[in-house]
Computed example of a mutant assay.
Amino acid sequence: MSNNEKSESKVWLITGSTRGLGRALAEAVLASGYRLVATGRNPAQLEDLVERYGDQVRAIALDVTSEQAAITGVAEAIKAFGRLDVVANNAGYGDVCPVEDMSMAEFRAQLETNLFGVIHVTKAALPFMREQGSGHFLQFSSVAGRIGPIGRSAYAAAKWGVEGFSEVLSKEVAPLGLKVTIIEPGGFRTDFAGSSTAIREGRPEYDETVGKIARFQREFNGKQPGDPERAAAAFIQITTVDNPPLRLILGSDAYRAIEQSDLVKAKSDRDWKELSVSTDFMPS
């Protein structure tokens, strides 16, 4: 398929396009010839893409914490290109702090962006995709959506919410011709662990848990194994297959951590099976 044929067939909308994996994906989508609605809180940071790709891209302001902004952003995408084929719900951030020391305002702010942001944009796009009879949601979770990492309670709570929400969504929309893939990245060499993250060790009682993680996070930044450009290529690939997976783990670190976590959970379930099933009514 030529780039021109691709551009006529697929329109992408990406949240959080100004940096990190979202920016890498935006550049890859445009380089592949697809049309793009690139969104972020500050669309001025996307002007270079508009200069390079012209009418192939629209850069719009979108604060995913606003339900109305999500509705308006999706409507602008439809107005610009007439359809919407892939929605990449990428916008998010994750602070490091002990549960005890994190304020409820900070906790709620992470849920608003990382969970409700995904819900807002998904719900805004759903009616258009349902009427189209096609479309693919890329729902950005994290390795933290599967393992519950120390120090990232709010982020993990949000990402576990994204996992549950998206799994339900996939079952509801599959008969309508829509696809859902939950993306679970590990560590990638972006600014996620830098400017996108506030890192606090918390009180000294948590030095061996959250404190240790905070120190590691600072040292690890810039050394993560994941390549954003390779991740972007994987995202595009997954939208071209007939039967994409419900979940896609990204990165060798994420794969190892999730595999080990699942083994531990399975063993614990087996160890406590007798007590688990003992709660059924006894046969009469």
Rank of each mutant, 00 (worst) to 15 (best):
V37C: 15
R83H: 14
G148T: 12
A144K: 08
G161E: 01
Q139C: 08
G117I: 02
L84S: 03
R83A: 14
T122W: 03
A125I: 08
R41M: 10
Y93M: 10
G54C: 02
G73N: 03
G145A: 09
G92T: 03
D48V: 10
K171T: 15
V74R: 05
E167V: 06
L169E: 04
V87A: 07
S170P: 04
V86I: 14
N89A: 12
K79C: 06
N90V: 09
L169M: 02
Q56M: 13
N89K: 08
F107S: 07
S103P: 13
L138S: 00
N89R: 09
L84D: 01
V168I: 12
R108T: 13
P149A: 07
G92Y: 06
R83F: 12
A157Y: 04
R58N: 07
G164A: 10
G92D: 07
F128E: 09
H120V: 05
I71H: 09
D85A: 12
H136M: 09
E172W: 07
G164I: 07
L36A: 04
T72S: 07
G40H: 01
V168K: 08
S134P: 03
G33Y: 09
Y53V: 11
G135A: 09
E131K: 15
T122K: 05
F116M: 14
T72Y: 00
H120P: 12
S153L: 11
A70P: 03
F140W: 13
G151L: 02
R41P: 14
I60N: 04
P43W: 06
K159V: 05
D95R: 12
G73V: 02
S134H: 12
S153G: 12
I78A: 04
R152S: 10
P98S: 12
V168Y: 11
M104Q: 09
G148A: 13
T72E: 08
I78M: 08
A158W: 01
V74S: 03
E167W: 08
K123H: 12
P98V: 11
A44P: 03
S153I: 06
I71W: 03
I150M: 15
A80L: 07
V57C: 05
A156F: 04
I60T: 11
A77G: 15
Q132Y: 02
L126T: 04
S103D: 13
L84R: 00
A144Q: 07
S141Y: 02
V86K: 01
R58Y: 12
A156M: 02
P98G: 01
K123E: 14
M102D: 06
T122Q: 06
E172R: 05
T113R: 00
L49H: 03
D95P: 04
A105F: 05
M104F: 15
E100L: 14
L115G: 01
D95V: 01
I71K: 15
E67P: 09
S103K: 08
S134M: 01
S141M: 03
W160T: 13
N89V: 04
R130G: 02
V86S: 07
H136P: 01
